[in-house]
Write a protein that binds this DNA or RNA. Sequence first.
DNA 1: CTTCCCTTGTGAAAATTTTCACAGACAGTA
DNA 2: TACTGTCTGTGAAAATTTTCACAAGGGAAG
Lengths: 208, 208
Amino acid sequence: MAKENLPVQAITRLCLLYRVLEGMDRNEILTSSSLEKLTKISACTIRKDLSLAGKLKSSTQGYSAGELADFIKDLFRFDRPVRVCIAGIGLLGSSFIKNPVIENGQYMIVAGFDSNINRLEVMRTSVPLFPACEMTDRIKEMNIDFGIIAVPAQAAESTLQRMKEGGIKGILNFSSAILGDKDIIVRNVHFTEELRFLSAMIPSIQKE
Amino acid sequence: MAKENLPVQAITRLCLLYRVLEGMDRNEILTSSSLEKLTKISACTIRKDLSLAGKLKSSTQGYSAGELADFIKDLFRFDRPVRVCIAGIGLLGSSFIKNPVIENGQYMIVAGFDSNINRLEVMRTSVPLFPACEMTDRIKEMNIDFGIIAVPAQAAESTLQRMKEGGIKGILNFSSAILGDKDIIVRNVHFTEELRFLSAMIPSIQKE
DNA sequence: CTTCCCTTGTGAAAATTTTCACAGACAGTA
DNA sequence: TACTGTCTGTGAAAATTTTCACAAGGGAAG
């Protein structure tokens, strides 16, 4: 009935649902079945997830897009602005820096770090850049919440440690290292692994 | 015992495991517990996944990195070269085009598509580019296996249809649309949703 | 050869997650 | 008012996935 019982998969699904709802007219009325078509999540699972998340009795005539979006927004505190930093100003890192305002401003990229001092000097950006050795201090001083790791694999673990010491709460890791930590939420994202996954799935559908 | 019984989560884990193994000396000997440290997957689950995947009796003294990698490679046919195309040559699309050889050549980007003809003419690239309307024919003619969708959300569904008609087997969708299809494996990947997921997880760890 | 130690592979148990199925509620109609 | 359609919220059942726990195997040492 409360959020602490929500399985991780349910959280993921609710985030997906929120994305769909955001893109709609707030007044639109949606049933769990129409949401199934939009999200590819079964109507049943949608209702159960909302129930587990503590959704209160609402109309018996479907959900209002706006109300449902607000429910999820409150549940996960999506209204709270989040300050994000990037470690590693390479190809990927700089593509983030070029668009520092994400999701209508909920997420703001407020700092970039790189161990290559030359690179910091050359780049022209609205986001302040610092050498990697200052990471822990700057994170504390600027009150940064999340970190994005876009450094080479061998530097990933030490970057995580620096971020952790600075008090970061969540990390998105795009390096090919596999990171994890008991105190911090870490999400590993790896492009080419998704291609591998597709390859791996192909033979199995031929059977089913 | 055979691959067709492998749950999707097991497939995902084996892909992850493969990535770790690839980065190691082939002669290194690994126990399921040492793999747990590297992958953050429990030793038990690793052994079970391998068992479900049909791993034959091996040494009782751990796994050889090389042999295990070969086992997964054979299982999922990771040796087969895969031809990939990109739809949408924007910021993201062109970053793929710039590095057309992925994973030592297993995946090769062999074509790009965009509906903006000007953009096609301006770009200087080693990968041939075509207008989006030719997509279905070119995919057939060039025998392309996978597609990457990097077009705006409103064009995503029609891009999927064109790819499907061309005979594409797997799609990686980076647009913010949520795609799915009963005949094709589709993987939806969305950066900012990962940030949302981190936000959503933060309050829940405070409880557990 | 025997003993010890460590590791895998796997049935069975436990835990988790999804689906089923229906009571209860409300809008619409007459 | 009463009747009908539809849709939610949720216990209970079903299905799936993970963990447990141990037999079996093999290397090392004496």
